[in-house]
Design a protein around this nucleic acid. Structure first.
Lengths: 134, 134
DNA sequence: ACAACCTACAACCGTTAGGTTGTAGATTGT
DNA sequence: ACAATCTACAACCTAACGGTTGTAGGTTGT
């Protein structure tokens, strides 16, 4: 599996995890502070198991981490994962600006330089640069 | 339907549209410049109809707009929709910073002040502020 | 006129997602 | 010891998703 595929897998997991309002709501709560799964479950009109699954999806995506404390599992939000999603969007916007031609370059500024938007604004001379493959 | 529900519907559509690698790839292409649907379809190992559906999903989410030119439908990426997604993530990060307590406040800075991150960085004194509802 | 092309959409199919209930194990408080 | 609580997971159900093929209508070029 190439590095780029891993990146796409992560993107799939992250965007999918965010594509559900219950999960986004759970994420908001655990970003404020730790909550046990059952404490979270009390806030929604669905079964405990359903909420637990949502937390599991968030956890698999890396948006939430869990810690054991006795019988409860305390979940808290991972703001760095959130920032990595933001950086994916920045990459897309960079494509729009015409800065990135090949997808390979997307993995260049991946470590910590997430919010790299010093520089030009609104080029507007973008027009079908159009390199068809094959 | 409340304003907040509309907002959540939009978030659902946007994140769901982005949660598929083929759609993200299509989006990258049309962010560079206009492409007809069949031109896009030629780039993927799937049927025309499948690609057309992907474009439709992106269009419904507002990430892509289509224009008719004769027999072809030219799709181009909507960078503003991309920025609105980024602003949703900023709102979540603002929740983490402890700035936003109630979800209602999320709709405050929604018009154009998307990248509102002048101000404090990394508070770190966040710890279970924890207001349980009910 | 007609063939080629592009788009749109319906119908279908297998898999995944989001929900349910039930069961079982570990921890806690009395 | 025992009941209550919390978590994890399996099994199941229905709806939505991502793909297919087929059909039909509008545009283009010869």
């Amino acid at each position: 599996m190439t590095t780029e595929e891993v990146h796409e897998d992560r993107a799939d997991a992250l965007f999918h995890a965010l594509a559900d309002r219950t999960r986004r709501d759970i994420l908001r709560r655990v970003l404020v502070g730790e909550h046990s799964v059952s404490a979270l479950a009390r806030g929604y009109d669905m079964s405990f198991a359903a909420v637990q699954k949502h937390v599991a999806v968030l956890e698999r995506a890396g948006l939430v981490s869990k810690r054991r404390s006795g019988r409860e599992a305390l979940a808290s939000g991972e703001v760095e994962a959130l920032r990595s999603v933001a950086s994916m969007l920045s990459e897309l916007e960079a494509v729009w600006r015409g800065r990135i031609g090949r997808i390979d370059d997307l993995l260049a500024g991946l470590h910590d330089a997430t919010n790299d938007q010093r520089g030009r604004q609104d080029p507007e001379e973008r027009q079908h640069t159009h390199q068809e493959k094959e």
